[in-house]
Design a binder for these strands. Structure first.
Length: 254
DNA sequence: ATGTCCCAACTTTTGGGA
């Protein structure tokens, strides 16, 4: 089984690349973030024609998350349901016995911005949802976490002093999620590999190798113990109209 | 530090977000 996560930065703008990905990468489940769509604009029919059932959670031009699956999709839960002004940042479903969650963690914007506190709160809510998950059901929590877990996941930690994505509170909040029994599968399989998943559109960051590894697949032991490989699909960051994020894929034997 | 991209809108340029 192959599960991918990909922040597409607008599904509408990215449709040709998403279609290319689905027809060439042979993935069973895809977790999307930043679809930037309302549910009624989501291309579920076009996805079905490509062989994927889908579920989407989106209110407007911001955020938006989805799950695509060609191995079944049931028990869909949209969002956390924890606040009146909830944003579309989380959706869960069961695909072939694996519970998957597609997460778009708030960016945080700046350490002194209210959005940063919101980011930490959001991660704590995610931790509670993971803690409440039955331990006998395989779980993969994937998405754009907007946190580089360690310095190895940042092209230049000195350039990020005082910036979001690398601060200790963010890393601690992310670690609190994984401490509930999940494993950052890429780092687990390749402890020393330097790989990034996001490069700013500006400054020629991709060409210069200025990236961060902020898109993660957090796996429960059932999946972690059966994982055979994980990789970043850097080719998806190249070519015509790419997202600023590359997909991350995990392969495991059910 | 900021060389881009994407979206909405009292749209053909601007502002917000990343």
């Amino acid at each position: 089984m192959k599960i991918a996560t990909w922040n597409v930065n607008s599904l509408n703008a990215r449709w040709p690349r998403v279609e290319e990905f689905l027809t060439t990468r042979d993935v069973d489940v895809v977790l999307l973030q930043e679809t930037k769509q309302r549910d009624d604009k989501f291309p579920s029919d076009a996805l079905q024609e490509l062989g994927y059932s889908s579920a989407h959670f989106g209110f407007n031009q911001w955020n938006g998350v989805a799950i695509l699956s060609r191995v079944g999709l049931s028990e869909v839960v949209r969002g956390f349901g924890d606040r009146e002004d909830e944003e579309a940042r989380c959706i869960a479903a069961t695909c072939d016995g694996v519970r998957v969650m597609s997460c778009y963690v708030p960016n945080g914007r700046a350490v002194d911005n209210p959005h940063y506190a919101y980011k930490l709160e959001w991660l704590e809510t995610l931790r509670l949802r993971v803690a409440a998950h039955p331990k006998d059901v395989p779980l993969v929590v994937g998405g754009d976490f907007n946190v580089a877990p360690e310095d190895i996941d940042c092209y230049d930690p000195s350039a990020f002093v005082g910036a979001t994505h690398v601060t200790e509170p963010e890393r601690t909040a992310l670690r609190a999620v994984t401490d509930e029994g999940l494993t950052d599968i890429f780092r687990h399989l390749y402890p020393d590999d330097v790989q990034y998943t996001w490069w700013d559109y500006r400054n020629g960051s991709f060409r210069r190798g200025w990236g961060l590894r902020i898109d993660l697949l957090l796996c429960s032991p059932h999946v972690t113990n059966r994982a055979t490989a994980a990789w970043v699909d850097r080719d998806a960051r190249k070519g015509e109209k790419p997202s600023d994020h590359a997909p991350v894929i995990v392969e495991f034997s059910l």
